[in-house]
Amino acid sequence: MLKVENLHVTVGDREVLKGVNLEIAQDETFILFGPNGSGKTTLLMTLMGFSGFTVTKGKIAFRGRDMTRMPLHERAKLGVGMSFQRPPTINGLKLSQLVKLCADDQDLDVQGLAREVNLEHFLERDINSGFSGGEIKRSELLQLMAQKPKLLLFDEPESGVDLENMALIGKMVRRLLQQEYRAQAEKSIREQKDERDTSGLIITHTGHILNYVNADRGTVMYEGKLCCASRPRDILNQISESGYEECVRCLT
């Protein structure tokens, strides 16, 4: 699904990513840990294609296509979607309008989708204007539910979210990643699993999101490089026991 090879990225005149290699398979959810300032968000921003993140070396391929230099909106059209940590407020643009734009469908059942993330009373509000942390997260999820990307990039889905919101957000992330199986007559759970075609890349500090999504692999970003991949739970335990130093030792 996603293949990143020897990616070097500069922000301003500082090299932030120094040779990142990463492969995420179809239907795989990959977890990214790392201290503040290590380059996690830079990786996500570069994958999405934001200005100010300059690829100086390396390659990003998505579903077999080289998208290293592809404009932002073409990546979105191709199936890359991102949940923003601090999205901007756009005055006069209502959440409901934006959700329709995300789906590129004026007849979308926005009400129905919004109900699932408790945002039906926010649809006529200007996007992100005065939204709380949890409301921003749910609004981002709502937009992604309409956009239906194949690769989901989440930057700390649990930050600034209270416990009650966390359960809802965790559940919706899980659904977006197509990990929510329901016993149903037409298809067995195995068949549903086989039909999954959505991947995820999730940045987390606390690991709370691991209580909601199944993630087989994860790694640590440290000073612009990735350590070896391992089971996310193990990495989390290791970080809480001995800090990020152990990962660095593994790097050197």
């Binding site: 999405m48 909106h73 923003f84 934006l98 956009q147």
Partner: peptide, 14 residues
């Protein structure tokens, strides 16, 4: 630019 790119990330061209 931040607002433009936010919408571009949702699939709108510039």
């Amino acid at each position: 630019q931040e607002e433009i790119e936010y919408l571009m990330a949702r699939g709108l061209d510039e």
